[in-house]
Nucleic acid binder design. Structure first.
Lengths: 194, 194
DNA sequence: CCCATAACTAAACGATTGTTTAGTTTTAAA
DNA sequence: TTTAAAACTAAACAATCGTTTAGTTATGGG
């Protein structure tokens, strides 16, 4: 005969939101495969056991890192959503994003884009779904801004949204390789005639 | 006291150029890290020992694969070099490249770009050097074509070459994720006002 | 026909991967 | 104070990584 225990027993010595942000930064810098559980232990400052207790496994740890990344990126996305300056706001977002990825001379890219580049056909389905969802969300925001420039027909808006989301995808990767000057040339040319 | 032997002893049962092309295709599809020696054995059709005998190690095998990839890509680069149609030839190269990467619905990207996306700060120096060299070579060709449109000032040519090489870099990654229609919209917009 | 040698097969190497498990410590309700 | 449960530490797990090595087979000049 058991009685239900409502005790908390021992307290957690870490805050999940805090350690997952550290994990996120490690994944962002290193990618999924290259980041080992041992590295996560050190970076997150907790034992493997605790990682598994809190997030299930490496994959769960990563999925939670993506959520954290999205929140961080929202600091750039929300101003874009709320702006009514149309394409000019998108251009600003491009520049903000480059700043967002910069650590030293070269950037870390975008965690989502980095993962999309790394993952293959046999990659985890949950992760792949998350990547597609993210891309569609951003494209949706671009579309809204393009619609603010009322002189555009719907078909052209769709085409330009494709152009912009792929340009953004490319920019994310490019921050890891190209210099600030080159990235500026890139962005300026994208928006030169849009 | 030794005498010099000029005998061939046993013959190789494979042609290095042939097996390295198979390795190249595997690296192209899967990336460097995800491709294991075991997979290379099966794909190349030869024993690990033979891979090490011919190419030193996994890294050597990969570097040789990049050489092989460059040769394959030359089928697209050479017509571009020899053309005198300026920007129009570059645009054609973009479309040719998409075709070049297509296997089924989505593309494999560019082996060089895939590697650039995968590799981190601690990546092999020989590989990183090879990637930079390749990028500079392509940019140089773009610059030549831009110079054929004589109405452009040198400074603008440099800026547009940056724009185009990053656009190409982005396109390479994008073939792995976006549909043909979206890629077409992307390319059309790149060259709309250049 | 020898036989030195290169190319083969297959097993084993140590290191590292992600994950689990056994044992100890801390917690707070009873 | 006792005690069940949660959170910790640390060791071990099987699997796989890239690489090496021991032993066998095939080659062709002497």
């Amino acid at each position: 005969m058991y009685r239900i225990r409502t005790t908390m027993a021992r307290k957690k010595e870490y805050i999940e939101a805090e350690v997952i942000e550290k994990a996120m930064n490690l994944f962002w810098r290193n990618g999924y495969e290259t980041t080992s559980m041992h590295m996560l232990e050190k970076e997150m400052g907790i034992n493997k056991f605790s990682i598994y207790a809190s997030f299930g496994n490496k994959n769960g740890d990563f999925l939670e890192s993506i959520k954290c990344y999205k929140q961080k990126l929202n600091k750039l996305i929300l101003p874009l959503k709320n702006s009514n300056e149309g394409v000019a706001a998108i251009k600003q977002y491009f520049y903000d994003f480059v700043e967002f990825t910069k650590e030293t001379e070269f950037g870390k890219g975008c965690l989502v884009t980095n993962t999309a580049n790394e993952i293959g056909e046999n990659g985890d389905e949950k992760i792949k779904t998350e990547l597609v969802k993210f891309t569609n969300e951003v494209k949706q925001v671009f579309t809204q801004k393009l619609e603010q420039n009322t002189n555009l027909e719907p078909l052209k808006i769709e085409e330009q949204a494709d152009f912009l989301i792929i340009s953004m995808f490319g920019l994310s990767s490019a921050t890891r390789v190209f210099s600030n000057t080159q990235l500026n040339h890139y962005i300026e040319n994208i928006f030169k005639n849009i």
